[in-house]
Amino acid sequence: MTDTPLLELRNITKAFGSVQALSDVNFEVRPGEVMALVGDNGAGKSTLVKCVAGTHAPDSGQILFEGKEVHIHGPKDAARLGIEVVYQDLALCDNLDVVQNMYLGRELNRAQILSEAPMEQHTHETLKTLAVTTIKSVRQPVATLSGGQRQSVAVARAVMWNSKLVILDEPTAALGVAQTEQVLALVRRLGEQGLGVILISHNLHDVFETADRITVLRLGRDVGIYDRRTTTQQTIVEAITAGVPTKVAGIPANAGAES
């Protein structure tokens, strides 16, 4: 594993009026790693992700992608770098079918005329490599899919573009047990395929099942990075709720898989 993180955030600060959503946040993800981002409601998780996705511009701080500083001004910029975001809600168009959603905004076309056949073919293949087998027809409207299937489509869409970093904002929040398992398995597979994954979740069980490392945010500050194998849910809960002194001694900021 390389030492250069795939994504590195340095001293990111973001305020909405008087609300300090993020202050001096440092964060990183490595290739092939599932990095969980946890924290209480309003801790700043979604805001941090939106800075990376180009929805918000940070007030100050640096974003480094593959070691180089980048400026991301919108979803197109993020996509060009290979960053894809799967939002918990509002990610799919219910009136469109699976293929149409997979290619939304990036339809294959010749002189603006849609090339349906290769899109359909490639959708089939992507779903197959991700072992998403429960969807009967890729030509059925997304409205007819179950919550887990919809989430699978959203994840599949994110990885179809040779993306390097996939960000999932609470991908299992609305799902039942079986469907949650489906999506978590999918998330693990992404990591195994060498992608960097940021997983935002309130469910520590999910986090401990999938993540390699865990970053805890509290009130807009990063309070620590933990290695999943050497920490306990209890520690994480304490970090989320009470907060431990920032950057705890003994847990260097880059404590991770190779240590």
Partner: peptide
């Protein structure tokens, strides 16, 4: 057009 009508926010996030 169909995408914006179906879910404008999703369309926007998809870069449309």
């Amino acid at each position: 057009v169909y995408a914006v009508g179906g879910n404008a926010e999703a369309a926007r996030r998809a870069g449309i």
